[in-house]
């Protein structure tokens, strides 16, 4: 019953997110602040992880191709497919559920604990619109982060090829151009937009409706990470089945 109640409350929160909009002059500031906190603030860690995981994917692929009949350019091909189809949109989203999600839950949860949300509501402000909507809009720039993750993942693979001597740069570049299907990019970005919505709303839900004190803020952050990850993984499966099968 609790799960059903929470699912219902989550969808009601989404409905409330679009009701009684906050004054644009104030909302504009909140959106820019959230773009800075959630998008710009994540670029460093995303760039670092993407570059090195791209390298690791390349090394592992190269080391598993020991048949001399298999062309070397396949390393680049496999790296591109892994990064564009799965690593950048899904793996990075799980990392973002930890980084951005826990930030959202703890910041909104702290506002709940310290009665700042009550203060907003007493003033007649739609607290859900004020707090969640700017995060939702900011995370609509999330595909920009994923584009960088895709690019740096492939560059990381190229660097690993070059420094590890697994294949030549030319072979790698031929590999990443081989059998390119533009719809795979569309598929990755459709997933990214869906995950961005989840990243903005699930942690906000856990922060907004939390009860208790400082300890519960920590627990809510953990719960929000778990649920965001679970829903991302499930939605990833459903979208993949719908779009690629």
């Amino acid at each position: 019953m609790t799960y059903l109640h929470n699912i219902g409350a989550y969808f009601l929160m989404i409905k409330d997110m679009f009701r009684k909009p906050t004054k644009w002059s104030v909302m504009k500031t909140l959106i820019f602040k959230d773009i800075d906190d959630l998008i710009m603030g994540s670029l460093g860690i995303v760039a670092f992880i993407s570059f090195f995981v791209g390298g690791v994917v390349t090394i592992q692929t190269a080391l598993n191709i020991d048949n001399p009949l298999i062309p070397k350019y396949l390393v680049g091909f496999a790296t591109r497919q892994s990064i564009i189809l799965e690593f950048a949109p899904t793996f990075i989203s799980i990392i973002m559920a930890g980084k951005v999600g826990s930030f959202i839950t703890s910041s909104i949860g702290t506002m709940r604990v310290t009665e700042q949300i009550d203060a907003l509501e007493v003033m007649g402000i739609n607290a859900i619109n004020y707090l969640v909507f700017p995060k939702f809009i900011a995370l609509m720039l999330y595909p920009f982060v994923i584009s960088i993750a895709m690019f740096l993942g492939i560059v990381g693979g190229m660097a690993a090829c070059f420094f590890g001597g697994y294949s030549s740069i030319d072979d790698y570049i031929i590999g990443i151009q081989t059998d390119f299907i533009p719809f795979h990019i569309a598929y990755a970005f459709i997933k990214t937009f869906a995950f961005a919505f989840l990243l903005a709303t699930i942690p906000s839900f856990h922060g907004f409706y939390m009860k208790g004190g400082a300890l519960e803020v920590g627990k809510a952050s953990t719960t929000s990470f778990v649920w965001t990850s679970v829903v991302i993984i499930l939605l990833n499966y459903i979208l993949t089945q719908m779009l690629l099968s």
């Binding site: 310290t114 009550d118 203060a119 509501e121």
Partner: peptide
């Protein structure tokens, strides 16, 4: 209705126990 409630609330001021300042 919700607009009237919003108008009424804009005429209210509240001092919370913990001040509830936006940090």
């Amino acid at each position: 209705n919700s607009d009237q409630k919003r108008d009424l609330r804009s005429k209210m001021g509240m001092v919370f126990q913990g001040s509830a300042l936006f940090d």
